[in-house]
Design a protein around this nucleic acid. Sequence first.
DNA 1: GAACCGATTGCCT
DNA 2: GGCAATCGGTTCG
Length: 187
Amino acid sequence: MGLRQEFFDRPVLEVARDLLGCELVVDGRARVRIVEVEAYGGEDDPASHAGRGPTPRSRLMFGPPGFAYVYLIYGVHHCLNFVTGPDATAGAVLVRAAEPLSGVVPRPGLALEQTCAGPGRLCRALGVDLAWNGVPVAEDLPGPDRLRLETGRTPRRITASPRIGIRLAVHRLWRFHDRESSGLSRR
DNA sequence: GAACCGATTGCCT
DNA sequence: GGCAATCGGTTCG
């Protein structure tokens, strides 16, 4: 079942957990199962791009839910997020890892399972870059359907932990992953 | 305008 | 385990 905008129009922690097990379809070509995500909040979350109010980059996080937020990190890799919560409130879920189901091109020297194990690897494998920033993800939004999400096999066991690579707000266990997956960025 | 930095990764020792 | 790559965004003067 395709995810609609109302799915994303909820608190970011709920959306993050519910995205685990969902399948991401890219250009109707590649299909992966999401196994690891992180939640990022608004002005109340110092670790978030939206933590100090809206900026040109984080503007999308303050917009309506159901759109992709893509940014470049370390000048090298891209990270894919989905905007959550009602318009004028900031929130987004970072997709950190997924299991390839079909259409993912293997990379030399890297097991297929690991191709999408990490936010940068995932974007590289799926061909997602800055040009994808702002594309609609919810199926009932107008615009191109280059990114789609569908419900999939729900994880049996979900583990919460601190967000990776974040120094602030370490006490917040806002990273969630499918404990039984072999396609995680870390254990 | 300039300086600093990062929600990462892969290659090096 | 250490560290370079590489660039847009953010902050500061």
